[in-house]
Simulated scan of single mutants.
Amino acid sequence: MLRMFREPEPALRPSDTSVVVRVPQTAGYRAPEGQSLRSSALVDKPLCPKGLILMCGEMGSLSRDLQDWSNRMRAVVMVVSEERMNLDWLRDQAPRLDFLLVDSDYLDDTESTIDFCMQVRRAVPRLPLVLVSSEVRSHDFTCERMMACDVTLKPPLLHTALTLGVQAAYQNNAYYQQEGA
């Protein structure tokens, strides 16, 4: 029997799907100067395998953007102010976290933001750090700011930019651990 039209595929339930993205394949990967994502060194892997994202900031449009994205990743977002984020607590929690997102616009100024990020970086160098700032011209997925963060994103956070940013953060953090730590 000949069919003229494709039969519709059954609808997928959220529990049937799994978001898979690309992260570094080996710890030995070394990114070229100024380059971040490189497809030849990437393999398929869930983006938020631990299911927990920590955001330093406050509830608002940025946290809603992150929450919307994290729902697709099957992850939970925990929003904490920098005053309540004790570095000892962060060291204890870091193994349970996929990454830390810092809202630069929530913190006082650029200098305070950089100081805060560098303190976090020294306390938990293995935790990927995503900085979000409206002060930057565009997204920066490179290793240029690796002493303070793994990537810098410009709001609003669209799903594609956040996905690419988190992918780059994992890869850049691995590079930082090799070169900068």
Rank of each mutant, 00 (worst) to 15 (best):
Q93P: 00
L66D: 03
L47G: 00
S39K: 12
P49D: 05
A94G: 07
L100S: 03
R91L: 10
G57Y: 02
Q25L: 10
M78K: 09
S81C: 05
R84F: 06
D44K: 14
C56I: 14
L131T: 05
V76I: 02
D98L: 06
R126V: 11
M73W: 08
G28L: 13
R96P: 00
V80T: 11
L100F: 08
L100R: 02
W69L: 08
D44V: 06
L42F: 08
V23L: 15
D92N: 12
A27W: 09
S112E: 13
L37C: 04
S133C: 05
T110E: 15
S63W: 03
M78T: 05
T113Y: 03
V130L: 09
L90V: 09
D68Y: 09
R126T: 13
C56M: 12
M118G: 01
P128I: 04
V23N: 03
S40K: 12
I114R: 09
F116D: 00
D44Y: 14
C48L: 06
S133W: 05
S133K: 05
L107Q: 05
S36Q: 01
K45C: 08
A31W: 02
K50W: 01
D115F: 08
E83C: 08
R84Q: 14
G28M: 11
V20E: 09
R22Y: 15
P125T: 09
S70L: 04
S104G: 15
V20L: 15
S39T: 13
D92Q: 15
Y106L: 01
V43Y: 08
A41Y: 14
M55D: 01
V120S: 00
Q67T: 14
V120D: 01
